[in-house]
Amino acid sequence: MKKGTNFYTVTRKVHLYAALATAVLVLMYIVTSYMMIYYDFFKTHESREHTETVAINSTNFSENNWQKFMTKHDISGRKVAEYENDNDDLVRRYESTGEITTVTFDGEGRSAEIRKQIKSAGGKIVARHRMRGYGGPWQYNLYAFLLDMTGISLILFAITGVIMWLKILNHNRIAWIIFISGLAYVSVVIGYLLLV
């Protein structure tokens, strides 16, 4: 009896703490999911562009000089791509939740074109839903860690929630109907996508 009680208590605590630890991110996900569903209303795909060309001495920046360049030209976010375009010009792209900045250095290392795609207010909010992965400045790594915690928490929510239901309201007919209908529906959708 005591063993059962302990298991239930632990399950309940895991369920609660998984929810509390990630509630802010989960709420953000829910709100931004609806914003993405109604993207026309929230104008999440809209942005405005700003381009300027600046003089430089060389494309061979030291890390320190590059940071100064970024600060001077207000380039925010983390580097998401670096490549050579069709003209063999070096291109660096930076992305934050507010803007996407593409810096294209001319082949002779005399100028750099800085093109900023500044997101709408809705786009900035939704960008937090899309932001993912480790790398870049510390806050991005911390955010990625929180996303990992959220992913694990969501799985824990679901599993511990079902375990608790089986413990508390095992004989509740409505709960069984919801559970079996949900399982059947999701299984049919997955099965169809797998087979067709």
Binding site: Y29, L154, F157, A158, G161, W165, F179, V186
Partner: peptide
């Protein structure tokens, strides 16, 4: 509980994803 059960399969997919 009812709301949780209804959404549990979606949460599993969302969490894994």
């Amino acid at each position: 509980l009812y709301a949780g059960i209804f959404t549990s399969f979606y949460l599993l997919a969302f969490g894994l994803s």
